[in-house]
């Protein structure tokens, strides 16, 4: 990792995320398909932003780029001060391990492991012992999962599974949580619970969160909403608030 990025590990960057002229083009047969075009996005530490837009607008691609799962065609991505756009796959994986926590629409828990086992696995992968000081027990309590330690995903409701996924995402104290439609597979009650969890993490622990959603109610939980269309950001850094919805969530 010697040549990695612009900032040494552990140093504090001004922004959690900063993309500059970010481009991602897929090759489909003989045709180039631009998925992300000229995206300039800045997310400050402790911010909770929602990215909205129609299907195929490039939201998920952008999230994968931010998480280092994809390498951009052009432009740069600074994650907590580290430019990951030019890094190798192994180096991006290392950045992801240290700085990113993922929450998916379909929870993506390991079905063979218990709730605790899923979280322990994330700790093991992280491997440097810098896990959440609150510990698994406290995180579970905070997310309303007390008593669910030894349950397998198949024994948990969708909402509970997503809360376990959130616990897994935050256990290693990542700089950023990337949530890919976290309420997409949940009913409205569980959706609200999960959104409240995310909001609490942001407000109480200062957790930076980037969330993709189709749902305006979910988006209202965020401090800021960014809209995308055809791979571009339409309303960069505009204020966007659904306070009444927020209150209802609370």
């Amino acid at each position: 990792m010697g040549a990695m990025g612009e900032m040494k590990d552990g140093a504090s960057a001004a922004n959690a995320i900063e993309t500059v002229d970010l481009e991602m083009t897929y090759r489909s047969g003989r045709v180039d398909v631009p998925a992300v075009q000229g995206v300039n996005l800045t997310v400050r530490h402790g911010e909770f932003i929602a990215i909205m837009g129609p299907s195929g607008c490039g939201k998920s691609t952008l999230l994968h780029l931010l998480g280092g799962l994809l390498q951009p065609t052009a432009g740069s991505i600074l994650i907590d001060g580290t430019d990951i756009s030019k890094l190798s796959d192994a180096e991006r994986t290392a950045v992801r391990r240290r700085k990113i926590g993922y929450v998916f629409q379909r929870f993506n828990l390991f079905p063979t492991l218990t709730a605790k086992g899923n979280i322990e696995l994330a700790k093991k992968i992280h491997g440097n012992g810098v896990s959440n000081p609150n510990g698994v027990g406290s995180i579970f309590e905070m997310l309303g999962l007390k008593g669910k330690f030894n349950f397998r995903p198949s024994e948990l409701s969708g909402g509970e599974q997503q809360r376990v996924a959130i616990a897994r995402a935050v256990i290693n104290r990542p700089a950023i949580i990337l949530a890919d439609e976290p309420t997409g597979s949940l009913d409205s009650r569980n959706s609200r619970t999960v959104l409240r969890m995310l909001r609490d993490l942001n407000k109480k622990l200062g957790q930076t969160i980037v969330m993709i959603t189709h749902d305006s109610e979910a988006a209202s939980t965020a401090n800021r909403v960014v809209e995308m269309k055809d791979g571009r950001i339409l309303t960069p850094t505009c204020g966007y608030s659904y306070e009444p919805e927020l209150e209802r969530v609370n």
């Binding site: 799962l69 994986t93 391990r97 992968i125 992280h126």
Partner: peptide
């Protein structure tokens, strides 16, 4: 894929 998203190395 999940392991990779969690940052599991090769």
């Amino acid at each position: 894929g999940i392991l990779k998203s969690l940052g599991a190395s090769q």
